[in-house]
Write a protein that binds this DNA or RNA. Structure first.
Lengths: 185, 185
DNA sequence: TTAATCATGTAACACGTTACATGATTGC
DNA sequence: GCAATCATGTAACGTGTTACATGATTAA
């Protein structure tokens, strides 16, 4: 259910079109939740049907027409409920789903040279990801000036910090894994 | 595509029924890939249609009948190809999708007391997960005696080690996040 | 001036989740 | 002997992914 609530959260900052939401999603939430353009449009329809959103068509002559969405009161209270739900299943929300660990698991079937190659690719990606995330903090601060709410950027930065810890841990693991995969068989 | 390949990987150890595969999945792969019973049965059908598997019905009188699946040659080579594919998109396979970070991101909207409560729940789950994973190594060794292939258990253990690093990093992050959420506003 | 890409979406299909079904078997 | 659960699945629906459509605008 996170896609719906991600959209609610973004629209809570102000009305937007599907196109703008898509960009906002990519700029902010996509580090920990990837959504396709098509998914966003579909969810907007569903959510309007649920009464969480209202929309209005804007005719444009220079560009294709567009449809601007805003939260209804139901939408706002749905967002608040989701955020503060004491029954929220934290454990389940934390679970890992990782395609690359599936390959690691069967590493014994691919020959050590291949396993080794894969692990080095993982290590390299970790390094790239850490570098990329190093720049996020600054760009959140920039955005924060617009939003001008320190309480928001505080939590935004925590998600970026999570990313750094995550890839740092993965990097450490990858180095160890490379060493293990090199042990005489 | 990891579900199909997880099934291929398990069937590579020997023929099994859907039911047995389901258990094997839960015992080994479910830490990093959760699959529902119904998904496994559906995929078995699909994979048989693809020619990756063959199956044979076994009539039982004491229990419901069952259908035993085995890899075909196409299935085996599909598995090998997937494992050794040099084009495999490591970066994409590493990406995070985390419902709880979505909630953290919008933490500013839920009031600090709620945010704080959520972060403590996360910390507690990390501790529980680390404790649980502490036991995995031993159970892999047990299983390893059956499989009696040190090269396999080596990679199995690496995935468990990943889990430990992951939850350890998340624990560290959660402690920091709790501190941040307590800062005077 | 034509190829790329931006801006705005839609459609079809693959995959994941939840709920249900039915006959043993085991524990109290 | 009755309730729980094991053993074997099926059906319906919700979410994610891939591919396509169409008219500006920009870069070579």
């Amino acid at each position: 259910m996170s896609l719906k609530h991600g959209i609610l959260g973004l629209l809570n900052y102000g009305p937007m079109t599907g196109y703008e939401l898509n960009k906002a999603f990519k700029d902010s939430l996509s580090f920990f939740w990837q959504a396709q353009t098509s998914q966003i449009y579909r969810e907007l329809n569903n959510m309007e049907r649920l009464g969480w959103l209202s929309s209005e068509q804007v005719i444009q002559t220079d560009k294709p027409n567009k449809r601007v969405y805003s939260l209804t009161e139901e939408g706002e209270s749905e967002l608040k409920n989701w955020l503060t739900d004491p029954e929220a299943d934290v454990k389940n929300a934390m679970s890992v789903r990782s395609a690359f660990l599936m390959r690691v698991f069967f590493g014994g079937e691919m020959g050590n040279a291949n396993a080794h190659k894969m692990l080095r690719a993982i290590r390299d990606e970790c390094i790239a990801a850490i570098t990329a995330l190093g720049r996020v903090d600054g760009s959140i601060s920039d955005y924060g000036e617009v939003v001008s709410d320190i309480n928001k950027t505080k939590y935004w930065k925590l998600t970026a910090l999570f990313g750094q810890s995550y890839y740092q841990a993965m990097l450490g693991w990858a180095e160890k894994a490379i060493a293990v995969s090199e042990e005489k068989e």
